[in-house]
Design a protein around this nucleic acid. Structure first.
Lengths: 341, 341
DNA sequence: GTGAAAGCGCTAACAC
DNA sequence: GTGTTAGCGCTTTCAC
């Protein structure tokens, strides 16, 4: 059942059927009704595939993230979906599992599906396929992770140096000097910048960094769980731990709880990024937070803005949106203990 | 740049280009190489929109859920995505926000986008658009919520009566009789069945149900937070609370923590569905759990199974997969207090 | 092993 | 206000 069938049934041409479906004004009310009735009667469903081919636009946007298990990316998705829905775009979802090969395939698919835009958190920011998007005029908006080579793409980030500095300064003001950090993957911007931010903030505070206190957590729950255990095994464990993202915070929290370490009496725990329940754990966790749904919403705006400009969007230079972060002091940060665990 | 262009450039016909792209065997190796080279050189990207129109199949599946904020649905998505990726299907994501109107629009879109299948958690299980999927031969797999009218669609559920019974029996065996439940939305199957299951299990245990102990939490964090506060305000609060899903458990937990109620010394808390961190809260929470990613994986299998059968899939009768659940006893359930808070 | 050509279902320019 | 028609880019049957 297609427009031609409906046309025949209604005694009009298929062009008229198309006009009715697309709400073209210059259709006689009578004709309109007639066609509408036939459509309903036969349960005709418009074929967007054919339309998309004809219009070379799909009203479709790719959402490509490395790990949908990370609640951060679902919060972003919420805001993004909201914007897309408002503007009539649908989302094609790709999960790359932090895997370069899978990421390539996903981008290839998105390309062939002719998405009108792409919101991506890339594993491989030097991916050649990015160029394909560019040359086809498909706008890309990046979150959190910038392309390493000077990028032409819009992106939404936070000031990672500042975010970590807020945490360090907060701990220092409480009297801590034995501060550890569980850092993330260094080959992505947030990992690199947050670690450097830590080192820099410590330097500024005039506190020497103990190398034993700088351990990798790989931005994962498990990695940070182990990193925390490693920290606990030290002859002199730190009095405070700074984690690099929500997952790391969860891992460190879980490890401290499991080892019966009291927070913050024995060790203070603070991290970057808030998450569901973080404010209701025992104790509620001190974090630096941003609005995740806002990230998604702004990404959607930037993207659809460019999409609607058409090919001229390339004339608009790269836009970098730095979202504000806020230190949210709860109860997991306190004065340092003055004894050894 | 399309296949015709490539054909001209390589000095072959567009049919040959198509064959090369689709890995057709009967192409001379030499021709194959030549075409391949031109494709790479000019960065040609295959157009799936045109292919989909031609083949009237899109290798695309709809994933429609009421609330992507709920970690349950993202865990399901993980398993589902895994299967889809393995079989070469892409996912079109729809979030209905528990809104009947939005759900309708989403289903309409999915229909016009000609998805090959649909994994859905429906708000309105009597939705007329379901019939459109049926008549177009597009298979649907339902999770958790069955159609109320005798449904023809495959679905993946758990035995809600049994799940709640496990919780009730566990509490009873610890000595509880003042058991409360924070139940969910009654117009969806899990809500209805879990509440009925509670009432039935209590009856079987020979324990009268105090009407004050049966409060609605609407399957939300906020709703259950308030429900818990309501319970705490009672002259004689319950000694144990059973929550109806992961979000309710979080809400109840948060409320108890905020009101300095000790778990389980003052009140035991147990719920349906596990979630990230549930095992690492203070105390770790006792829950009835299932494998969420398995839900997604099986849904994917069932769906693609039918898709690959083509139109004959209609001859296969409805398949209902009841996934096992398991009581996971942690530390949030203990003997009842013998005093009033 | 390769090419010519029809046609998937739609939209939009053009004609009337 | 409505119809005719070309064509979006691809796959696939049929010839050779």
């Amino acid at each position: 059942m297609n427009q031609k069938d409906i046309a025949r049934l209604a005694g009009v041409s298929s062009a008229t059927v198309s006009r009715v479906i697309n709400g073209d004004d210059r259709v006689a009310p009578k004709t309109y009704e007639k066609v509408k009735r036939v459509i309903d009667e036969y349960g005709y469903v418009h074929n967007a595939v054919a339309r998309n081919l004809k219009k070379s636009s799909t009203k479709t946007i790719g959402y490509l993230v490395p790990d949908i298990n990370n609640p951060f990316f679902t919060s972003v998705l919420v805001g993004f979906e909201e914007m897309c829905y408002a503007k009539g775009y649908d989302i094609i979802f790709e999960n790359t599992c932090e895997n370069v090969e899978k990421e390539k395939k996903s981008m290839q698919t998105l390309l062939s599906l002719r998405v009108d835009g792409l919101l991506a958190v890339l594993v491989d920011t030097e991916n050649k396929l990015i160029d394909s998007f560019d040359s086809m005029g498909i706008p890309i908006v990046l979150i959190d992770r910038k392309s390493k080579n000077e990028s032409k793409h819009d992106c939404i980030i936070i000031d990672n140096y500042d975010a970590v500095k807020k945490l360090v300064d907060h701990l220092v003001s409480l009297g801590h000097t034995d501060i550890a950090t569980i850092y993330g993957s260094l080959d992505i911007t947030p990992g690199e910048e947050r670690l450097n931010g830590f080192l820099e903030a410590m330097k500024q505070a005039g506190i020497p960094v103990n190398p034993d206190y700088v351990v990798p957590g790989y931005f994962t729950v498990e990695g940070s769980y182990e990193a925390t255990e490693q920290l606990l095994k030290l002859k002199k464990p730190p009095t405070a731990i700074i984690t690099a993202n929500n997952l790391s915070t969860m891992g460190a929290y879980a490890a401290l709880v499991d080892h019966k370490i009291r927070i913050p009496q024995d060790i203070s725990l603070v991290g970057i990024d808030d998450f569901l329940l973080a404010g209701h754990l025992t104790p509620p966790l001190t974090v630096v937070r941003r609005s995740n749904t806002t990230v998604g919403r702004i990404a959607g705006e930037m993207l659809m803005d460019r999409i609607e400009m058409g090919s001229t969007h390339k004339r608009i230079p790269q836009r970098i949106k730095v979202l504000p972060t806020e230190l949210c002091v709860r109860e997991s940060s306190g004065k340092p203990r003055n004894y050894t665990i």
